[in-house]
Amino acid sequence: MSSTALPDPRTQFGTILGLWGAGLGAAAQFGKVSVTFPMLGEIYGGAGAALGFAVSLVGFVGVLFGVTAGLIVARVGPRRALIAALGLGALVAGYQATLPALPLFLASRVVEGASHLAIVVAAPTLIAQLSAVQHRGLTLSLWSTFFGVAFAVLTWGGLPLARAWGPGALYAAHGLYMAAMAVLVAALLPRDVIGARGAPLSLAGLVADHRHIYASPFRNAAALGWVCYAGAFVAILTVMPPFLSEALRGMVIGLMPLAGIAVSMTLGVWLLRHVPAVRVAVAGFALSLVAALALWAVPGSAWPYLALAGALGLVQGASFAAIPQLNAAPEARAQANGALAQMGNVGTTFGTPVLVALTAAGGVNGFLVFAVVLFGGGIALHLLTARARARRGSEAV
């Protein structure tokens, strides 16, 4: 396959900020339902477990179709895929603002999951293309903050809006934001930033492409590390705060994402200018393991939680930066971003229930088992894929 290179190698920071803004809209596709979940319980009274799918269905789509989204983006081009996904997201959010019957609301979340996937695959692919090599650590670390920033905005601004006017108002505001982002991205992105066209998608072809991507130590490396990061961070943020006193709990929950963002955008960006991204990710996992040992030793203290979040911030930015370092062609990057999206959803889907079970059985000792397996696993997977890359030397696209 061939790809179209950018004629201008300079970093297009304004366009990249626009793409990051699109990412905030994608993160809000998760967050808007999370922050309004108790209100939905009142609206759809008696829904019980069925309502729980309102949150998880977007992620479940990613588990099933993350790589497929990467393949589609690689074929149709990230610019067109992103604009279409933002437009679809705007329509779905507008429909959700009407608060339809629960089965229809859940069906809309499946469609929204497809929109979300296309955005989180296409946007970082484009950011890598629009960044000079020396700036990719900065721009992709910025991209990696989109979830944390969006959840903070939804907590500080979206939740008061929903409390005052109902969740439908927040969903309508989200729809308007997504529509505005679609227009902005269409205006900002140069039309020559496109991917290669390949053969039409088929079931046999999808199976073969999955096998090819996950067999490639160039395309699978970031995803295999990311499943350990995603599974750990969301689970720890959800399950471990009850080990803290109530006086500390709210502060720690609020500061953990910010600690990760701060480290990713400062120390992480500096390291990525001097050290290969995979090594930064390995260092982040190693420091996370040390911080986890401290948390296990003093689970009632706040600082180990913040230290752990900061260490994981190194993994956060380095994982996205590793994709363009390991994959030269835009279509290969799109496929690697699809795998990362898929593995991230696997981690967030299964990490929390596993940690709940371990801490229920063994308390803070169960957490230590969880941390050793995931952080040690992240180190091992990166070292194994690095060894496989060294043996292979290079990869044909």
Rank of each mutant, 00 (worst) to 15 (best):
G14D: 05
L142R: 06
F367G: 03
P190S: 06
A262I: 03
L102R: 06
N345M: 09
E331V: 07
G313T: 04
Q29Y: 12
W296P: 01
F105Q: 03
A222W: 06
A223G: 06
A307G: 08
L340M: 15
G344M: 04
Q335M: 14
S245C: 01
P276S: 05
N365Y: 02
T36W: 00
W226D: 00
L170I: 10
E395N: 00
T238P: 01
A173H: 11
V234H: 02
W296H: 15
V76F: 14
C228S: 13
L293I: 04
A180E: 06
V269S: 04
V354L: 15
Y44T: 12
G23C: 07
A297T: 10
P100K: 08
L203V: 15
F233M: 14
R333K: 14
W303P: 01
L267V: 15
S202H: 08
A361D: 05
G166T: 14
I213E: 00
A179E: 07
A132T: 05
H274T: 12
G344K: 09
A262M: 13
L64T: 02
S319Q: 13
L289A: 14
T4S: 13
M251G: 05
S3G: 14
A281P: 09
S131K: 09
L19G: 03
S131L: 11
L51D: 04
L99W: 07
G300N: 05
S115R: 02
G25N: 08
T348I: 15
L384C: 05
M256I: 11
E395D: 05
F30L: 15
W270C: 00
T4A: 14
L189F: 06
V372F: 10
A321D: 03
E112W: 10
G21H: 04
M1V: 10
V263P: 01
L24M: 08
L82H: 09
L326W: 02
A321E: 04
M178Y: 02
G59K: 02
G376P: 06
I194M: 07
R249M: 15
L17D: 01
G175A: 12
V397Y: 08
P304H: 12
G158W: 13
I253Y: 00
A172P: 05
G113Y: 10
L51T: 11
V120N: 01
D209R: 12
